[in-house]
């Protein structure tokens, strides 16, 4: 299975939540991600109590919608980010947010292990790339993701190697659509 550098196989734990309703796996994910989600929400302007409550909601969604987690398309951290972001929009902006159609295409064939590995390691590679950016640029990206920049203030150029991620996901989507037809 795809293991992170610190030895923890987050995707494997997530699949145990998805396939076996494994509570111990959920607890491990909670210990790692809930405090991060709480910090993310506080950086986005939520008070400690609201952030704690929303982090609980985010982890409940992770349990409930585990079937939507696709280890070949996203790392667990990325998936957690998308849930936390949606929660932030719900809680702080009260706007409705349209989501793209889910590509939830019935019984999944066993995902390709190399692809899973690739997707799970992406977060660390991006983390290193972020750390290597000039301080000013990194701060700007962080502010954008913590919701501190308006859409007109968001500059498109992140300076991060996103092209490789895009090509990999694009290939995964093509394979998925081929299996459909």
């Amino acid at each position: 299975m795809a293991q992170a550098e610190d030895g923890t196989d987050w995707a494997g734990l997530m699949l145990r939540v998805r396939d076996c309703q494994d509570r111990a796996a959920f607890a491990a994910l909670f210990r790692h991600f809930a405090p991060r989600v709480k910090a993310f929400l506080m950086k986005s302007g939520a008070g400690a109590a609201l952030a704690e409550e929303c982090a609980q909601d985010v982890m409940a969604v992770l349990w409930q919608k585990a079937h939507l987690f696709d280890p070949a398309r996203a790392s667990v951290a990325t998936w957690v980010f998308t849930i936390a972001r949606n929660k932030r929009i719900d809680a702080l902006r009260k706007d409705r947010r349209a989501e793209p159609e889910e590509l939830d295409w019935g019984p999944e064939p066993e995902p390709d292990q190399a692809e899973v590995m690739e997707a799970q390691q992406e977060t660390e590679r991006l983390g290193r790339a972020l750390a290597a950016l000039p301080e000013k640029q990194r701060a700007l990206i962080e502010r954008a993701f913590f919701g501190e920049l308006s859409h007109s203030e968001i500059a498109a150029e992140t300076g991060l190697p996103l092209g490789t991620i895009k090509s990999r996901i694009r290939l995964a989507l093509e394979k998925l659509r081929q299996q459909m037809t």
Binding site: R36, A84, T123
Partner: peptide, 22 residues
């Protein structure tokens, strides 16, 4: 796919963030 690559930046930031204890 391009959207997913931006989401992945969010994932990296969540991973690197200084956590706040629950």
């Amino acid at each position: 796919a391009r959207l997913a690559s931006f989401d992945a930046v969010g994932g990296a930031l969540i991973e690197e963030i200084d956590e706040i204890a629950m």
